[in-house]
Design a binder for these strands. Structure first.
Lengths: 116, 116
DNA sequence: TATAGATATACGAATATACATATATGAACA
DNA sequence: TGTTCATATATGTATATTCGTATATCTATA
């Protein structure tokens, strides 16, 4: 499966999607309820944007019981990984990205397994 | 002047805009008629997209007589320059980007001064 | 001033996007 | 089977985007 270049940048052009990608890039893998809590937006909005990212082959999902985890596919082209690296390095200390990470880390069930 | 991150990626998410940026990145500076000829699209379409890029502070223009030249502003944030470098390195050997460059180099007035 | 060439903008139409809300699906378990 | 929780999708609405075409602006020069 190939990723179109406009699709790739279009994925990053929406703040909600970029926030999801940035958090997933920093943690490796997150489920929908973790993203919902970290970003503080309603769940259908998260699911819709994750579906767009999955459809563009920028994220892949993995179901584990009730939870669905999203991660970057390992075969993402190298230059796209570099773009994500540079982008996340730059935005991770800006709002709303740093608050997202803080809220994620404050989730009681984080750093254990399972979700809220 | 600050560039919003969504604006930056939105600029790259359109193929016409990415083709313009890629050519300008490779050459340093191009005028509207050079871009029009290289991409093979009508002039108002080029001007409209260049105006979007200028409005997002991703390109800057410089008038020289009848011609208007567009270039990347020197103070573009470093990580955005890195993103452009990685992107152009990757797409420069794919269509339609390599044909764009070929058509640009075939312009009789190129490598001299002035335009067609 | 009049003309020509280069560039910019205005306009209407078709299409796409993002959102909030409501509802559906799917898995686990009593 | 029925319920609950996590996630996905459908719907209607408001707004944005892109395009082709027509026209306006701007500069140089006669």
């Amino acid at each position: 499966m190939n990723i179109s270049i406009p699709d790739f940048f279009h994925a990053l052009a929406d703040e909600t999607r970029l926030r999801c990608i940035a958090l997933i890039h920093q943690t490796g893998e997150l489920c929908v309820c973790e993203l919902t809590h970290a970003l503080g937006v309603v769940q259908p909005k998260i699911s819709r944007h994750l579906a767009i990212l999955k459809g563009a082959h920028i994220l892949r999902d993995r179901r584990a019981g009730v939870w669905v985890y999203y991660h970057l596919p390992p075969e993402l082209p190298g230059w796209m990984v570099k773009v994500l690296n540079d982008t996340v390095m730059s935005v991770r200390d800006q709002e709303p990205f740093c608050t997202d990470r803080k809220r994620l880390n404050e989730m009681p069930s984080r750093s254990q397994n399972g979700c809220s």
